[in-house]
Amino acid sequence: MAAKLELVGIKKMLRGRQVLDGVDIDVNERRSLVIIGGSGQGKSVTLKCPLGLMKPDAGQVLVDGADVTRMPPEIRQRVMRKFGMLFQGGALFDSLSVWENIAFRLINADKVSRADARERAIEAMRKVRLSPDFADVRPIELSGGMQKRAGLARAIIAKPDILFFDEPTTGLDPITADAINDLIVEMVKELGCAAVSITHDMASARKIADEIAMLHNGKIVWRGPTASLDTSGNSMVDQFVAGRAEGPIQAVV
């Protein structure tokens, strides 16, 4: 059976720099893959290519075995409905209330009536343990952790098959971060979706990943089950996991 999502030989050049130089990853249903790597190593670009936010220079993005980069826009649009994404800063629309944010796709793309959409938004808020009392406030009035919860509710409301998480715990205190990690694990399990996260928070990676892959210089340099992270035998992974400035990877200061 084809993987839910597969990237084959993705290359992307940005401002004269080869950010991705042939990235291959695949992830199945009910599996969670975490991509780790230093800042500026192309982790975000790896997520943006399958979402259609960036066009890869070469390579394929296969969803259920079909290459979305070669689909006509209207068919691709339909496939894109299988994706949900939690953005690093939440990326909530500040002109809309929290529930309108969460129900944005239902109201604007799926043409669900506002009353039904609101009901489903509140149900999604309960799922991510965000009190429905906040449904009518603006996102700016929420704390960082609550914004992440709202972003997660927005990503899962249409029951996606593939979920992306961009630095889900960045900027959160350790306790809130752990609560978000728990939620991610719970949602991936409940929806049965394929999850791809990027992070440099090792505690988060260990908690949410079934498998971990390390991206360095535009390539996946190591991939293995979370349990084998400490015995990878890869000096770059060891350096990254231990958080040492000395080693094969040069710190960019």
Partner: peptide, 11 residues
């Protein structure tokens, strides 16, 4: 990233 988010919400 609100514009990117909008695109991922099929709008």
């Amino acid at each position: 990233e609100q514009i990117d988010a909008m695109t991922t919400l099929s709008t």
